[in-house]
Design a protein around this nucleic acid. Sequence first.
DNA 1: AAATGCCTCAACCGCTACTCG
DNA 2: TCGAGTAGCGGTTGAGGCATT
Length: 287
Amino acid sequence: MGRAPCCDKTKVKKGPWSPEEDATLKNYLESHGTGGNWISLPQKAGLRRCGKSCRLRWLNYLRPDIKHGGFTEEEDNIICTLYTKLGSRWSVIASHLQGRTDNDVKNHWNTKLKKKLLAAAPKTNNSIPLINNNNNNNPSDFYGSSTPSMETYNAPPSFPSLFNQNYPPVFINYGLNINAQNLIHHYPLSELGEACEFDASAKKSNISGLYSSFAMESNREGWSGGDVGFSMDMGSTGCPQDVVNGVWSIQDTVGEFGNSYPSLVSSFYGDTKPQGGLPYQSVTNQY
DNA sequence: AAATGCCTCAACCGCTACTCG
DNA sequence: TCGAGTAGCGGTTGAGGCATT
């Protein structure tokens, strides 16, 4: 048996709020406050709405300090910068923007900023991103049923906060999440390290989290293995975002990446979770 | 003018975190 | 310490508006 619903769904109204309902809720909250309990509020206020719905309507729309209307360029930059550091923690990001709600920021990102940045990131010529060693060059096999975009992007030029001019250009090919337990189940870590040329520090890591972040980059100067590099944080390297959000930051990884490209995050470029058991295969990059 | 497709965003859903008895 | 109730969060949906054909 599942969890008991927060209200009787058959008795509450759903869908868009009418101006009358807005006024009722606003008047009630301005004179009584929430009383510390949203669940019982609609009954007290005389609304046939779920408490959660009332809370959302107030927080996202009726609150007097809400800023409606388009986002400024400065707000866009803040969102982009924080997204690279925090991932989709919309409430935290929204807290840095006066009068913006998490829902607002989330919608704005999904409908505008994400597309804007993708459009500003032209595909590279060397976009043959992944080949597995299973004698089967169909990359979708590697990703299971959740096939990601196999496109490769240059660093978006409109994303200046990500790229410090003191560093050489970086081309991130792809970033994805991997279920570490599945991974261990199928591969000894040392074998994985050999097969995929993981950073030496990653080989030594203890796997402690369910999810780890895995990223591949190319054209990275100084990479000992040639043009292709892999980095993996196994959840034990002090990266605060990787386990929960799949947000991966070179700045937060250990080893030789540690002092490289500050704030550079791969999660923007692709994010998927392989589903089902993976066949034995390693991954290389080819030009 | 009508049909169609696309985009936006308010609202919902389900899950986790937190609080309190 | 545990469990119930509630708050908060992020992902997703779908109605309505707008643009294009």
